[in-house]
């Protein structure tokens, strides 16, 4: 048995979620090989080689892979897939884009968003917005799987010394090209791996008021998220959305401010260890999942909280 883990990275740094995917790979057992497909991504390969449990790193360094275009990366994965029993990637926008295409090229199914490994062919995944949890068994010779990072402990980032091998396969389908990217710049921790997350909802009333949450987040070393309602209303950009169709988070502490707690939002944060809800509506569904609920006007409670931390 041999597991291929497709690394998520920005050509400079290995994204932390890859360490969680490696955690899932470790549970499967067997050799673990990491594929780093990118452009000028040598540093990423070195980081991957140091991760716990990795036996080999394959680097495909070419302009065709620089922006993780699915048409090219999926073709590369399909080309090398026959050496592996399992192919894993993070269930984030990159993994979700690339892996189903690779699965189709291999004529196999994909198991999406797994949160547990039961055995080499059986996996647990939420569906219906997390309202039901399915145990599914795959009969395919190659199991293609996206992994929900919050479901698995990260392996150690340091300590390994895997061999790095360069892969001289260029798949440029010529179907797609990168135009531009607008990435949010922030000194705060990344939402999906932060220890503390502060999120705002419709109750924030506008984008300007989110400043209060940034201030609170900075006191706690937290990332800032938002409900779909706040993103749809244009208060904050899409990359901050927590929920069924946004990001899935499971921090030690989640503070929901002015969020009513729609099921789609709960699907993205209900695995948090401790949940705090601040909302003036005492009947808001968020209080049914909160460990500590404070029924209060957030415009009074949040500044007070900032001053007392």
């Amino acid at each position: 048995m041999s597991v291929l883990v497709v690394a998520d990275h920005d050509n400079q740094n290995l994204k932390p979620v890859t360490l969680n995917v490696l955690g899932a790979a470790k549970q499967l057992g067997g050799d673990i090989v990491v594929l780093v497909a990118g452009e000028g991504c040598g540093a990423v390969a070195e980081q991957a080689a140091k991760a716990e449990g990795v036996s080999k790193v394959l680097v495909a360094d070419n302009a065709a892979y620089g922006h993780h275009l699915a048409e090219n990366v999926a073709a590369l994965i399909a080309e090398i897939a026959s050496d592996y029993s399992h192919i894993l990637a993070a269930a984030n926008t990159t993994g979700k884009d690339i892996l189903p295409r690779a699965a189709a090229l291999l004529d196999v199914a994909q198991v999406s968003d797994i949160i547990r490994v039961e055995s080499a062919d059986t996996f647990v995944r939420p569906f219906y917005a997390g309202n039901a949890i399915a145990t599914v068994q795959s009969s395919d010779p190659i199991k293609v799987i996206t992994v929900r990072g919050t479901g698995f402990d990260a392996v150690a980032a340091e300590g390994g010394s895997a061999a790095v091998e360069s892969l001289d396969i260029v798949k440029d389908a010529g179907l797609s090209e990168f135009v531009k990217e607008e990435l949010a710049k922030s000194d705060r921790p990344e939402l999906t791996s932060a220890r503390v997350v502060v999120s705002g909802g419709r109750g924030m009333q506008n984008g300007e008021n989110f400043k209060m949450l940034y201030e609170l987040a900075d006191k706690l070393g937290a990332a800032v998220g938002a409900s779909r309602a706040a993103v749809d209303a244009g208060f904050v950009p899409n990359d901050m959305q927590v929920g069924q169709t946004g990001k899935i988070v499971a921090p030690e502490l989640y503070i929901a401010v002015g969020i009513s707690g729609a099921i789609q939002h709960l699907a993205g944060m209900s695995d948090s260890k401790v949940i705090v809800a601040i909302n003036k509506d005492e009947d808001a569904p968020i209080f049914q999942v909160a460990d500590y609920g404070l029924v209060a006007d957030l415009f009074e409670a949040v500044p007070e909280l900032i001053s007392k931390l």
Partner: peptide, 14 residues
């Protein structure tokens, strides 16, 4: 224009 984890990305497809 695609909503990706880090923000937005534009790609051109044939």
């Amino acid at each position: 224009e695609r909503e990706i984890d880090g923000g937005l990305m534009d790609i051109k497809l044939k």
